[in-house]
Design a protein around this nucleic acid. Structure first.
Length: 511
RNA sequence: GGGGGCGUAGCUCAGUUGGCAGAGCAGCAGACUUUUAAUCUGACGGUCGCAGGUUCGAUUCCUGCCGCCCUCACCA
């Protein structure tokens, strides 16, 4: 039977049940216990406990007058033991008419079958929700990454490890939030829709507000609003939120991603480095229960003192030339040697340093490593360092060859800030990037000296769940829209299309 | 955007050096009173991603397109 036939056959099954007085999509679920809890309780104390459980049917083994089924809820799986003598022929018929994927509720004493499987000896069976689509292969599950990402619900129902990843994701975020709150950071929410974007160099998503008749952008970073709050007198603030960058997608980049940014008045880059270590360790302990973890087969020790490298001397040593003084031709040559094919017209010293560092040094920063002392014009929102005015008081944390955290002593001199933003603006290649005058106005009221950090939450989750693609830690990663005639899609089977009244766009808007 | 790989039944995958399209699971019909990837019997299920081209004949070869994955580029 093909897909369409299967679906219409299942719609018919549901109709038949209705005719027999069985509602295939009832409102109420009788009292239900978590499957994992039922099993552990039985193991501790195998009383003849009668329980109600609810879950999705994931397996069925029928033997005539006896049958077995597996149901699965979020906590685990338990076997249903169906006996004609207990539940009657109608009960057996109902059970045998179920499809894998159906949600059911069952009640009965918990028992152990002859083969030792903890089971519910079913005395009452209720269909909770009829599934119309065929259930994926019970043994192999879903392997096609396209289905896994586009139809995460299917991935989740058959691939148990996926659920684990997203549980850990929640644990990681909880632990970050908890630690910051313990330290007196106030969690805030700032606008995601903004008339101006800033705080990073990235191309924004652009949208339009009808009533205001104005262009709005989705934020590319949280920074500029959080700093306004420091101006307002909030001493410690943080936000965990989605940011949006209209750039390429790959295993480390999704157009929308989750950023944690935290700002602390009277702190600085060094204070933020220490906070970074604490955050990473708290998250690791919460998610993995340990600090010595493994990522893609490589042991990573988050417990040891994080190494600290100065960007320019490290690069200089690696290239055997001083990137701050060497002729640009030499830097271009170094790029070619390392397989960097294209060098843009606009490439200046900063570009070369950034690029060379990322190809020559970053991949080797496997153990947690702070990189400090970035060139100042790579860091327009950071203060310059005390020793060298051309270097920023800034750090980036790399783990497993990737940037995880970026932080600095926040620039609070409004005059310098304006200068640096204007200089930055001249370098912009894409659209006109307006300077955020309100941000500068805020600084002009006086922002206390402060440290700030930004942490890529998705990447941290990747590290702690040992996933190699950002798509594996985002429930619904961005994909190209499905074609009109989508894979596995079928027309409205079993539905009288004439009953569907078209709705006007105007009406939808009002709704 | 460049390069590489992949796309076959609802799912997981074989296969065709160009000649009637295959399996397991699921689904359908039946048998079965302790199974757990149950077993057994039977029938069904395909626009071989889409569109062109070459050919007596294309799922197979060629071109273009679509989608996914990898990689490079872009990306503070």
């Amino acid at each position: 039977m093909g897909l369409e036939e299967t679906i219409s056959a299942n719609i018919k099954k549901a109709q038949n049940l209705r005719e027999q007085g069985i509602e295939p999509y009832p409102i109420r679920t009788p009292e239900t216990r978590a499957i994992a809890e039922v099993k552990t309780r039985f193991e501790e104390n195998p009383l003849d406990d009668v329980v109600g459980v609810a879950g999705r049917l994931t397996g069925r083994r029928a033997h005539g007058k006896v049958a077995f089924g597996d149901i699965q809820d979020e906590t685990g799986k338990i076997q249903l033991f169906m006996r004609s003598q207990e539940i009657g022929p109608e009960g057996m018929d109902l059970f045998n008419g179920l499809d894998l994927g159906d949600w059911v509720w069952a009640r009965g004493p918990v028992v152990r079958t002859r083969r030792g499987e903890i089971s519910v000896d079913v005395r009452e069976l209720v269909l909770l929700s009829k599934s119309l689509r065929p259930f994926p292969d019970k043994w192999k599950g879903i392997a096609d990454p396209e289905i896994r990402y586009r139809q995460r619900y299917v991935d989740l129902m058959v691939n148990p490890s996926v659920k684990q990843v997203f549980r850990k994701r929640a644990t990681v975020i909880d632990s970050l939030r908890e630690l910051l709150q313990q330290r007196g950071f106030l969690e805030v929410e700032t606008p995601a829709l903004q008339p101006l974007y800033g705080g990073a160099a990235a191309r924004p998503f652009v949208t339009h507000h009808h009533v205001l008749d104005s262009t709005l952008y989705l934020r590319i970073a949280l920074e500029l609003h959080l700093k306004r709050l420091l101006v307002g007198g909030l001493r410690r603030v943080f936000e965990i939120g989605k940011c949006f960058r209209n750039e390429g997608m790959d295993r480390l980049h999704n157009p929308e991603f989750t950023l944690l940014e935290a700002y602390e008045a009277f702190s600085d880059s060094e204070g933020m480095m220490s906070l970074t270590e604490d955050l990473i360790r708290a998250a690791a302990l919460a998610a993995c229960g340990r600090l010595d973890i493994e990522y893609q087969g490589t042991p990573i020790d988050l417990g040891a003192q994080f190494e600290c490298l100065s960007m320019i001397p490290t690069l200089s040593e690696r290239l055997s030339l001083d990137p701050m003084t060497a002729p640009l031709d030499d830097l271009a040559h170094a790029c070619h040697v390392r397989g960097v094919e294209e060098i843009p017209e606009k490439a200046d010293r900063t570009w070369f340093i950034d690029r060379l560092f990322s190809v020559a040094v970053e991949p080797e920063l496997v153990q947690p490593t702070f990189v400090t002392g970035h060139p100042l014009d790579m860091s327009p929102l950071a203060k310059s360092g005390e020793d060298d005015p051309e270097r920023a008081s800034r750090f980036e944390l790399f783990v497993a060859g990737r940037e995880l955290v970026n932080g600095y002593s926040e620039l609070n001199d409004p005059v310098k800030q304006r200068e640096r933003l204007l200089r930055q603006r001249r370098n912009e290649t894409f659209e006109e990037h307006l300077v955020d005058e309100d941000f500068l106005r805020a600084l002009e009221y006086g922002m206390p000296p402060a440290g700030g950090l930004g942490l890529g939450v998705d990447r941290l989750v990747m590290l702690l769940t040992d996933q190699q693609s950002i798509q594996d830690v985002i429930l619904f990663p961005q994909m190209r829209p499905e074609a009109e005639k989508a894979k596995g899609d079928v027309p409205l089977v079993g539905i009288d299309a004439s009953a569907l009244v078209p709705i006007h766009v105007d009406q939808m808007r009002r709704a």
